[in-house]
Measured scan of single mutants.
Amino acid sequence: EDGINLEEIREFAKNFKIRRLSLGLTQTQVGQALTATEGPAYSQSAICRFEKLDITPKSAQKLKPVLEKWLNEAELRNQEGQQNLMEFVG
């Protein structure tokens, strides 16, 4: 629908959760960090719904690039050390 690749979103949601957990981050931490930079659309409950795919494809499509960018950045910081990650997450 609307050129939205559901399979891709499903895959990303699954990987997002795995990668988030491997960084040792909670949904709350991700939500707080993103709410600070991106606004309330990225709250803990939004992250939770995204991971469960309990949102419309359109919403998922909107969240995905922001979550992807944030997660990549978080992983980079983590490679530089846990301290850097925690500063990034705030």
Rank of each mutant, 00 (worst) to 15 (best):
Q79C: 12
E68T: 08
T26A: 03
R77I: 12
P65I: 09
E1N: 11
T28S: 14
E11W: 03
L67H: 00
R77W: 05
T26M: 01
K64L: 10
I9G: 02
Q82H: 13
D54A: 09
Y42Q: 02
G90M: 15
P65L: 03
S59N: 12
L53I: 01
A60I: 03
A41T: 08
K17W: 02
P57M: 13
Q83P: 13
E51N: 01
G24Q: 00
N72I: 08
V89M: 13
V30D: 00
E80H: 12
T37Y: 10
T37Q: 14
F50V: 00
N5E: 11
Q79P: 05
S45W: 02
R49F: 00
E73K: 10
D2T: 14
E51I: 00
K58D: 11
L23W: 05
I55V: 12
L21W: 00
F50N: 12
T26L: 00
N84R: 14
P40D: 12
L25G: 05
L6P: 12
R49G: 07
Q32S: 08
G90Q: 08
L67V: 01
I47Q: 04
E7C: 03
G3A: 11
E7G: 06
E68M: 02
Q29E: 10
G24E: 04
K62T: 11
E1F: 12
T26K: 01
S45H: 13
Q79L: 11
A13Y: 02
E1T: 07
A13R: 00
L53P: 03
E38H: 15
D54V: 03
Q83A: 14
F12K: 01
A36L: 07
E75D: 07
F88E: 15
K64F: 10
L76E: 12
Q44Y: 12
K64I: 15
E75N: 10
T35K: 09
I47S: 00
E38Y: 15
L85W: 08
G31N: 03
P40G: 07
T56Y: 11
L53C: 12
L67T: 05
D2A: 08
I18A: 15
V66W: 00
F12T: 04
G81H: 12
A36R: 14
W70M: 04
G24D: 03
N84K: 15
E38I: 07
Y42H: 07
Q32N: 12
G81Q: 07
V66H: 03
Q82A: 10
E1R: 05
A60S: 05
N72Y: 12
P40W: 06
K64N: 00
R49M: 06
E68V: 00
A36V: 07
S45T: 13
K52Y: 04
G3N: 15
K64V: 12
Q82I: 04
G24P: 01
L23P: 03
R10K: 14
E38S: 08
E87W: 02
L67A: 05
L67F: 00
F16C: 03
V89K: 12
Q83K: 14
L76M: 11
L85F: 08
Q27L: 15
G81K: 10
D2R: 13
V89C: 12
Q32T: 10
L23I: 03
E7H: 08
P65C: 07
L63R: 04
A46T: 13
P57A: 11
K14H: 09
E7I: 02
D2L: 08
Q82D: 11
K58F: 14
R49P: 04
L34W: 00
W70D: 09
V30W: 02
L34I: 09
Y42G: 02
Q61W: 08
T35E: 15
L21T: 11
G81L: 05
K14V: 06
N72C: 14
L67G: 04
E8T: 09
N15A: 10
E68A: 05
A41Y: 10
L76H: 09
K58S: 13
A41I: 03
V66M: 06
N72A: 12
I4H: 04
